[in-house]
């Protein structure tokens, strides 16, 4: 009898482990695929913004292009520079990639589809996004190259500066939602497009997106790469698969920031038509994972749009913008958000 109970117990435990692993695979595999097609999407979008066609040779409409790129990178030789620190040089891309994937553990795709429904989800996300910069710094230092080192220094200064603005922007969300659980943050925004936090926290919404650009080192804040000034910055010495991993990390981070913006400021999986007289009663008014993915894609598109629109910032102006413009605005708006909650202007889940 006892043995049988034990057997059943271990079976359930092994099931749980297998189940969790399965869920991780179900998140990571689509993510990698989306990264591949995101690069294709980027080239097409920027192509059409610059009145070009973009890649259209490999496969129908050029759809196989991302795979061609990946195989090209994988088949290339990885060159280790002389006097580079071998161990750190090889491990740096992995350090850059790991947090970008690990952060997805707490992202709620809809009301029940979430890998880990943890209470301190928002803090967890902040902690992991702040770790990504280590990959860049270590890569820059281990390469034993002055351009890579300059890129690493720029990345470190930029990441530390913009993390503060990013954190403060999320403090506003925290105050209005009264919880750090990402699922509950979305639930607190119920009630249609005007109840989402982009409206009461509009300056913070904008600041979050700007700091998101800076955190992911995307144009116009791509100082860490700055190909017209420091060749390619931190990854100038990387080639082949090692470079591909850096590439993967950058795009995974962009998708992550887009998803987080959708959750914090655009109601996650909630429908924009919720509570509207006619549309709200049809299937369009129901929240679903499709809305979450659609919102994420919109923010992903904006990343590309910025890249095609703005020229790169000068280094000192990036610092000025972060410290003297964004942080004071978030500080003031934090007070306003507290006032909104106290006076009952924004009510949770109304």
């Amino acid at each position: 009898m006892f043995e049988m109970i034990e057997a059943v117990f271990t079976w359930i435990q092994s099931q749980y482990l297998i189940w969790t692993l399965l869920k991780i695979v179900l998140i990571v595999l689509p993510l990698i695929t989306v990264v591949a097609f995101y690069t294709f999407f980027e080239r097409k979008v920027i192509g059409s913004m610059q009145i070009r066609v973009g890649p259209n040779r490999v496969g129908p409409l050029g759809l196989i292009q991302p795979f061609a790129d990946v195989f090209k990178l994988l088949l290339k030789e990885i060159i280790l520079p002389t006097n580079a620190n071998r161990f750190l040089f090889v491990i740096a891309p992995v350090i850059a990639l790991a947090p970008a994937f690990a952060a997805w553990a707490v992202v709620p795709f809809n009301d029940f589809l979430v890998l880990a429904d943890v209470d301190a989800g928002l803090l967890y996300v902040l902690a992991l996004t702040s770790l990504g910069v280590y990959g860049i710094i270590i890569a820059g230092w281990a390469s034993n190259s002055k351009y890579a080192f300059l890129g690493a220094m720029r990345a470190a200064a930029q990441a530390v500066s913009y993390e503060i603005a990013m954190g403060f922007a999320l403090v506003g969300v925290l105050i209005l939602a009264g919880t750090m659980n990402l699922r509950e943050i979305v639930l607190a925004q119920q009630g249609g497009i005007l109840d989402w936090y982009w409206l009461p926290l509009f300056p913070m919404f904008v600041i979050y997106m700007i700091s998101g650009l800076a955190e992911t080192n995307r144009a116009p804040f791509d100082m860490a790469e700055g190909e017209s000034e420091i060749v390619a910055g931190f990854h100038v010495e990387y080639s082949g698969a090692a470079f591909a991993v850096f590439f993967l990390a950058e795009y995974a981070n962009m998708i992550l920031i887009s998803g987080l913006t959708a959750i914090m400021f655009a109601g996650g999986w909630l429908s924009p038509f919720e509570g509207m007289p006619v549309l709200g009663d049809t299937f369009l008014g129901e929240g679903s994972i499709i809305w979450f993915l659609a919102k994420t894609v919109v923010f992903m598109f904006m990343f590309l749009w910025y890249r095609a629109t703005f020229p790169r910032y000068r280094y000192d102006q990036i610092m000025r913008l972060g410290w003297t413009v964004l942080i004071p605005i978030t500080l003031v708006w934090t007070m306003l958000a507290a006032l909104m909650t106290v006076l009952g202007i924004v009510v949770k889940g109304s």
């Binding site: 902690a127 710094i137 200064a157 990441a159 530390v160 954190g167």
Partner: peptide, 14 residues
């Protein structure tokens, strides 16, 4: 992790 690993140690490394 946020304060020491994410910010203080980055500056140390810097």
């Amino acid at each position: 992790v946020v304060v020491y690993v994410g910010a203080v140690m980055v500056l140390f490394l810097f």
